[in-house]
Amino acid sequence: MTTILDKPMPSPAAADKPIKPIDPNRTRATPYVFVAPAMSGIGLFVLLPALLSFIGSFFAIPLAPGANWKWVGFDNYTSVFGDPAAHRAIENTLLYCAMTIIPSLVLGLLLALLAESLRHGRTLVRTALFLPMTANLVAMAVVFKWIFALQGGFANQALAWIGIAPVNWLNDTRYSLISVALVGVWRGVSLTMLLFLAGLTTIPGAIHEAAAAEGIRGWAKLRTLILPMMKPTIVFATVLSILTSIQAFDQINVMTQGGPQESSETVLTYTWKVGFSYFQLGKASALSFVLIAVLIGIGLIRRRAFSAEQR
């Protein structure tokens, strides 16, 4: 960095010196050199596997290195569609999404608005509300498992205190999915709130002043000014919430392991079992792709509805 050149330096004005022309190849190559390492990474570990996963869903895949893939056509898909456990997993995933995405978005927005409007202790409140997002989900799942424990768990102690019989949160088919979804919401709200707070700060102060001057307040202000201006944030938060929810795995694997009787089995935990406990990798790929197809379908419908509304 600090090489000191003691040669007399050519002044740029020295026209007698031959001027080196710009090497067009070098300049043109620079952006490609800049993007190549990053693109190779996502190409190799996101794009290619996604593609292989799709192709692999038509094969029987042995795990042993060097063993040949065997073409099985749609067998993996028929196996998925004929598998009640897979049905259950897809159903549970959609239920889990419904139970987590909407509350996360609504509560996150509400809390962001509340936290923004506080005059005192704003930073402290924010920090407290951000913590769930940062926590290690496996560690927190361990804690939640203890909170939801049948005997001595806080949840049941609290119920007993108001005179309700204990609930077997994690080992009752009726409650297991709700229990893990509660953890998902606890964490999801924290993330969406951060995004919404960020979105709120991008609204210029002049807008608030103009609204105050015109007497636009409360619900009217939220509906006519704040929400429309936060549209990009809302879209981003929705996409992120969907992605987080369909990929829910950590707390489920720790708290219920998909049980009891597949009552909290989601596509990801089930894929994991099919792939890495039963080693049916082709079927696992097919399962992933069924879910992705459902997601793309939902995305397309939403998009159509959105653009129809725009018109």
């Binding site: 996101v46 290619l48 596997p49 292989l52 996963s53 990929q247 994991w272 990798l281 792709f289 997601l295």
Partner: peptide, 14 residues
Amino acid sequence: LIPTQATMVPTFIG
């Protein structure tokens, strides 16, 4: 937008 589950299996094999 590509979820982990779409890449998990082939990445693991690779």
